[in-house]
């Protein structure tokens, strides 16, 4: 009975994980090269609506993700142009994009999303390999959808690229000491542009996935601070992919617990229960901040780079 409960909780958690994981990896990338992407909340809202529109264009969740990705890249392009090309204040740009994303999101939603907006998510691993049997125990990993596995793959790829490749070295150098990297022949602007576009695109994918596969529809205010939570995860993950993974697991766990408690009929008012992720964010921030330790904050984070 309790084991069942724990297994159920685990899978509810893993179901939600990709949203946080993809979004915070996207945010991580742009912070890695020294640029705050504060607009994640707005970006996700915009991409969520684009995802739904994309779904109905081709009747495919993959088209939804593609639309979300392109929406994210569009936001990344604005961010990179204003923050990297023109060296303007990243915080102000972030707030501007946040509002723009919220506005464009509900604007497009009211105009273009059909009233019956029920979307269908991705096929599960089980469907993909053609497994027909009953899903119990470890076989339940087959009921997680493809994006879950792709998001884990993404985590591994990003860790490898950032820490094991020449490109990753250039990215880290750009975030730590752009002047030195520039002197060593790294094209700071190209690295920053590229990384921010990819990062913002990933945030867009997370938004589209949230709408198309997880909630299967759009309601206003649907992102509900998940963008900000993903932003916080990067901060208290101390700019390290493995920590970011644990942070995402924690938040997915809170969300999963919420879902499970509701289904087994625990009578905590749902409004109070939905507060939990935000309260956990606060507690996590307190724990991380009060633990002394070397901060791995990219030294050039938030600082415009002027070529001498």
């Amino acid at each position: 009975m309790t084991l069942d409960l724990i297994v159920n909780l685990l899978f509810a958690t893993l179901n939600i994980l990709p949203i946080y994981l993809i979004a915070s990896l996207g945010g991580y990338l742009s912070q890695r090269v020294g640029v705050y992407d504060i607009s994640m909340e707005g970006n996700m809202t915009f991409a969520a609506v684009l995802g739904i529109i994309g779904f109905f264009v081709a009747d495919s969740p993959w088209m939804g993700l593609l639309f979300g990705f392109l929406g994210g890249v569009f936001f990344g392009l604005i961010l990179a142009t204003l923050a990297v090309r023109f060296n303007l204040d990243q915080i102000v740009i972030g707030f501007g994009l946040w509002f723009l994303g919220l506005g464009l999101g509900s604007f497009l939603y009211k105009l273009y999303v059909p009233s019956d907006q029920h979307t269908i998510g991705f096929s599960t691993l089980g469907q993909l390999v053609g497994y027909k049997g009953e899903l119990t125990g470890f076989a339940r990993f087959l009921e997680l959808d493809v994006i879950f596995y792709l998001s884990i793959l993404l985590l591994i790829i990003i860790s490898l690229v950032v820490y094991r490749t020449r490109l990753g070295l250039q990215m880290r150098a750009t975030g730590e000491n752009p002047a030195a990297a520039d002197a060593a022949g790294v094209n700071i602007f190209r690295i920053r542009y590229f990384t921010i576009l990819v990062g913002a695109g990933l945030v867009g994918i997370a938004g589209a996935y949230l709408a198309v596969a997880f909630l299967q529809g759009f309601t206003s205010g649907m992102v509900a601070g998940r963008g900000w939570i993903a932003f916080s995860i990067v901060i208290f993950g101390r700019w390290k992919p493995s920590n970011i993974f644990w942070g995402c697991l924690l938040f997915a766990g809170i969300n999963g617990l919420q879902v499970r408690l509701q289904t087994i009929g625990v009578t905590i008012p749902s409004d109070l229960m939905t507060m939990a992720p935000y309260i956990v964010t606060l507690i996590a921030l307190v724990i991380i901040m009060s633990r002394s330790g070397r901060s791995r904050i990219p030294s050039a984070l938030g600082i415009p780079y002027y070529r001498e």
Binding site: L88, I93, G96, L97, F99, L100, G103, G105, S106, F107
Partner: peptide, 22 residues
């Protein structure tokens, strides 16, 4: 035209002011 047009304008205004400053 959805009322969220105001949010679009507000976001744009912030971006434009910072850009005009530049």
């Amino acid at each position: 035209i959805p009322a969220s047009f105001s949010q679009i304008l507000i976001g744009l205004l912030l971006l434009c002011v910072i850009f005009a400053g530049y």
